[in-house]
């Protein structure tokens, strides 16, 4: 599905003293299959933005198009749209309500009008994709651990077989391993099902690692839109709007400024390691290998 926003604006508490422009003339196009990261400080309009993609919020101005159809045109079936554009809110485990995990995951597919068997089939498949072990299917959602609950809740949206999956900070409050697991699962899902992923996150390291494209929101305006490399080149400007680049980007820029000729378009530890070694080699430094290369592993 191709999602398009044309000149979209949204205003909270319109015409009162509290009026606040949450989106300010945003133009955007997201083709099928992209992994898009959305970053911005709290109140930058990220949450408002993603709720426009599945028609939970209606733009004050401008149009939202899904596959070239205006979703707010008369007669457009927005209820059906929500099955194609799945939205996972922050702390999605707070919306679990059924007696057992499997039935809860079936909620979406059943609302779609699927038969019991079909819904169960989709629920099982999604739970498996989200890494929820089968022995938990019959348990009450409230007995699960934090990470398991989170995955079951994501499976609840995935079970509707959406073409687009939007996740608002899916790893908030989890421990490092839980965070890694969720991201790995999302990345593998995207490949397995050719999903469009739209991921809202505060972690620059994570979006740098997984996203093909980054959208930076600031005061309701789309400030930057490009590959992570392009966006993080503006690391100084990002700081001014309350954001930051990954730590690695800073190291590379510091090195460059202080005279080591390294590539600064770098996002991961591995790339950084290779670039630094390469630059040092060129400068004729660091060639004297210490006697015991295993020392670092102590």
């Amino acid at each position: 599905m191709l999602i398009k926003l044309e000149d979209v604006s949204y205003v909270y508490s319109a015409k009162t003293a509290y009026e606040q422009r949450a989106l300010d003339h945003v133009d955007l196009e997201i083709p099928q299959g992209q992994f898009v990261g959305v970053i911005g400080h709290t109140g930058s309009g990220k949450s408002t933005l993603i709720q426009h993609f599945n028609g939970l919020m209606k733009p004050a101005e401008g149009r939202v198009l899904c596959d070239e159809e205006d979703i707010w045109a008369e007669g457009y079936d927005r209820h059906a749209l929500r099955f194609k554009v799945g939205l996972v809110f922050q702390y999605p485990e707070h919306q679990l309500f059924e007696m057992d995990v499997l039935t809860d995951v079936c909620f979406g597919p059943k609302n779609q009008g699927l038969t019991e068997e079909e819904a169960l089939r989709k629920a099982r498949r999604s739970l498996a994709h989200c890494g929820v072990p089968e022995e938990l299917y019959g348990k009450s959602p409230f007995e699960l651990s934090g990470g398991q609950k989170r995955r079951a809740a994501i499976a609840g949206v995935l079970a509707m077989d959406p073409e687009v999956l939007i996740l608002d900070e899916p790893t908030a409050g989890l421990d490092p391993k839980g965070r890694r697991d969720i991201f790995e699962q999302i990345a593998s899902l995207q490949k397995k099902r050719n999903l469009t992923i739209i991921l809202v996150s505060h972690s620059m390291e994570d979006v740098a690692k997984y996203a093909d494209r980054l959208i930076v929101m600031n005061h309701g305006i789309k400030q930057y839109d490009g590959t992570p490399r392009e966006v993080f080149r503006h690391y100084k400007e990002l700081e001014k709007i309350g954001l930051a680049a990954p730590q690695i980007t800073y190291v590379m820029n510091d090195l460059k400024r202080k005279g080591l000729d390294v590539d600064t378009d770098i996002l991961t530890v591995e790339e950084a390691r290779d670039a630094i070694l390469e630059a040092l080699r060129k400068a004729g430094k660091g060639t004297k290998r210490p006697g015991d290369p295993e020392r670092g592993q102590k």
Partner: peptide, 11 residues
């Protein structure tokens, strides 16, 4: 990163 560089032989 420091750990990786060290493993690769940087002092």
């Amino acid at each position: 990163l420091a750990y990786e560089l060290r493993k690769a032989g940087l002092p």
